[in-house]
Design a protein around this nucleic acid. Structure first.
Length: 419
DNA sequence: TCTGGGGTCCTAGGACCC
DNA sequence: TCTGGGGTCCTAGGACCC
């Protein structure tokens, strides 16, 4: 059985702040979001005080002060830099690494089975020594189980930051203790539906029939169930895919009412998003603008709207994108409302050289050369690991169109042709 | 006065084509 | 003008993640 590791930096933003201010150690620390809006990271001490993710600062300010909580505004440049350092060490130590988020990565430990715990402990010590960032390792045969393992590594002090769920018995133990909503990919909505079926713990989800899960929650939930059962459905994805959408948005510090002000904000969002676009050598085909009033002010009149403008030709040119965005603003702006947030989303993204984003092989050609050529082109254009529309598995009724017929996806044409 | 800012994937369903 | 199977492509919106 092959082994995956999930490496997760502990309370990442807080750990970063502590590196540069050791006086923060052993104290309750909270890092706030942009505009100092709400808590986005808490130290263990802060968590013990009952401070939750997303707690708004302005509502808890006095209370936190009383409890001696140290507050920090976020510094994403710093976190990004430290994240890169951790990742580069991982890349040196592991054969393949998938960066999942700013503070998490999956690593492949295939071929190291039996020694994975020792190896993880060594990696952990190295990362701590070289960067000062404490990390936790979860080891398991699938990504979803590795998530469970990682959580156990953090919760269980005796594990010292490394937890292996490579054996079925250990998996059963850990899953029995886990509420279904705590499984990666299940949140309140899906949790509610699963509970209605009598599935209340992660182990229930593992034991459930895949076709039941398919019927109730689609391919996503089926996949989660199989993954918990030790079947690998989510593969390690090393190739960093080009972005499919790029967004820039902000809450305003104070309510905005004039169209003029909205336009100014939108123009700055577009220019930021366009920069990101160009840095990745991409162009956008559509520009979406959204605005809304303060949803927390239930007594005020609410309004929210969005509008998409299609460009005749995909572009990364800031002025063209701004022009499109202003058309959208003109359509959605209404006088008399107090806007507190707006944003811009660039979509229909394609490589700047003008090659179309989606590549198709029609069903007639499934066994033929066209498919091979399509996948080939796909790999050339997008890099590897990006084809998601192709499914392998039972395939009698291709009329299902975009329904994914298999819980597994692949970009390897050998595998596609085998279907 | 003040409640983040990004993203991804999947599904349903409509318009349209041969 | 209608029938109908088979298929493409796109969009909106839901759900989730960090």
């Amino acid at each position: 059985m092959t082994c995956l590791g999930l490496v997760d930096c502990n309370n990442f933003y807080v750990s970063c702040e502590r590196l540069f201010d050791p006086g923060l150690r052993h104290r309750p620390v909270v890092v706030l979001s942009n505009n100092d809006g709400c808590a986005v990271a808490r130290s263990d001490e802060a968590k013990r005080l009952g401070i939750r993710m997303g707690d708004p600062w302005h509502l808890h300010r006095a209370e936190w002060q009383r409890k001696g909580v140290v507050i920090r505004s976020s510094n994403y440049a710093l976190y990004g830099d430290l994240s890169q350092r951790v990742i580069s060490i991982l890349r040196r130590l592991a054969p393949s690494v998938e960066v999942y988020s700013i503070d998490e990565a999956f690593i492949d430990l295939a071929g190291l089975e039996g020694r994975e715990e020792g190896i993880a402990r060594e990696m952990r010590a190295t990362i701590l020594q070289w960067t000062g960032i404490p990390v936790s390792f979860g080891l398991a045969p699938t990504k979803t189980l590795a998530k469970v393992a990682n959580r156990a590594a953090k919760k269980d002090a005796g594990s010292q930051g490394v937890k292996s769920l490579m054996s079925r018995e250990k998996q059963s133990d850990a899953l029995a203790k886990l509420e279904v909503e705590e499984v990666w990919g299940v949140a309140t909505r899906l949790g509610r539906r699963l509970r209605a079926l009598g599935i209340t713990t992660a182990v229930d989800l593992r034991e459930a029939q895949p076709d039941l899960l398919r019927r109730e929650g689609g391919v996503v939930v089926e996949r989660i169930g199989r993954e918990l059962d030790g079947e690998r459905c989510l593969m390690l994805d090393e190739g960093s895919k080009p972005a499919r959408s790029i967004m820039a948005s902000r809450s305003f510090g104070r309510p905005v009412t004039a169209q003029r002000e909205l336009e100014e904000a939108v123009a700055s969002f577009v220019s930021r998003a366009a920069e990101k676009l160009r840095r990745q050598n991409l162009a956008a085909g559509t520009v979406l603008v959204f605005v809304h009033t303060n949803p927390f002010k239930t007594t005020e009149r609410q309004y929210s709207a969005s509008d998409v403008v299609r460009l005749p030709v995909a572009s990364a040119d800031t002025s063209k994108l701004i022009h499109a965005a202003f058309c959208a603003v003109r359509r959605i702006y209404k006088q008399g409302y107090r806007y507190t947030k707006a944003g811009v989303m660039l979509d229909a993204i394609e490589p700047a050289d003008g090659v179309q984003g989606d590549l198709w092989a029609s069903a007639d050609d499934w066994k033929g050369k066209t498919l091979m050529r399509t996948v080939d082109r796909l790999n050339r254009v997008w890099g590897r690991g990006t084809m998601v529309m192709a499914a392998c598995g039972v395939n009698k009724r291709w009329a299902m169109r975009s329904e994914h017929l298999s819980p597994r996806y692949t970009t390897r044409w050998e595998e596609l042709l085998r279907v």
